[in-house]
Simulated assay, not measured.
Amino acid sequence: MTHDTDRLRQEICRVGRSLFERGHVHATAGNISVRLDDGFLITPTDACLGFLDPDALAHVDAQGRQTAGDRASKTLALHRAIYDADALAHCVIHTHSTHLVALTLAGVWSPTDIVPPITPYYVMKVGHVPLIAYHRPGDPALGARIGEAMAAAAARGAPIRAVMLDRLGPNVWHESLAAAMATLEELEETARLWLLTNPKPAPLTEAQIDELRSAFGARW
């Protein structure tokens, strides 16, 4: 085990514990993976993210074959589809965050944007988040649907870093686990604000969003 791999194992456990302690995941819901030079690390199937063992994390080679650790999460194929679609994605976090799942049950704002751009930090830190139609947990078809959404967003010139699985929860990817966790938190908080406000707030105007693009490089 290299020093870098050991550090990533510890970081997965730290992020998992933080998400669990703050209620972003519960029981054995959710999973985390990171990309390695020789494959991937991913949390085991039916593992509680609050009590992960660094040595038990599953190591999978570039072809998806497990080489060490406990049995890999059944969402491995989905994570690999995200990595294949975005060379800058170095980690993926999936949770069953309460307000985001509640949003899909109540009805999202639109299939291409589950919530409107109601805060500047949502535009800056998250960007567009499309809804992926319901599939059973672990369905291999989910990877293809997410890949299609990522390709469509890239073609529009606004690459995405998250999708929402109907009735299941968000998948968020980024260049580091810390950045992915921050994006997830902003996404969940925006869903909470949208569900709590009545009447619903107006989205930011196009001029306001364009200012965020110019000042901060927002991908909207």
Rank of each mutant, 00 (worst) to 15 (best):
A47G: 08
V92R: 03
R156C: 05
V126C: 10
D166V: 12
E21S: 09
A81N: 13
K200A: 03
V101F: 07
A151W: 03
A215C: 02
P130V: 13
R17V: 11
K125Y: 05
L19A: 04
A62E: 01
R71D: 08
H90P: 12
P117F: 15
D210T: 10
A202I: 11
G39W: 01
I42L: 03
T119E: 12
I160F: 05
I82V: 15
E175S: 14
G39R: 00
H24V: 14
S18F: 14
Q10C: 03
Y122A: 13
L131R: 02
R161S: 09
E175C: 12
F40A: 01
V108W: 13
T95N: 10
L131H: 01
R7G: 07
A180T: 11
G143E: 11
H96L: 10
A153I: 00
W109D: 11
C13G: 02
A106L: 02
D113A: 06
T28L: 12
M164E: 00
Q66E: 01
P140F: 12
Y122V: 13
L103T: 02
A87G: 11
A178C: 12
L105N: 15
H128A: 09
H94T: 01
T112S: 13
A47M: 14
A29S: 11
A215V: 03
R219A: 03
T5Y: 10
A77M: 07
I209G: 09
W220E: 14
G143L: 07
G39M: 00
E185F: 12
R136W: 13
I12W: 02
I82H: 11
G107R: 06
P199D: 04
T2I: 07
A87T: 09
E21P: 08
A102P: 08
A68N: 03
M124N: 15
P201D: 09
L184Q: 05
R161C: 08
Y134M: 04
G169K: 06
L36F: 08
V108F: 06
H99G: 10
A106E: 01
H59Y: 07
D166C: 15
P159A: 10
E186L: 06
D84W: 03
Q10W: 04
Y83S: 04
T43Q: 06
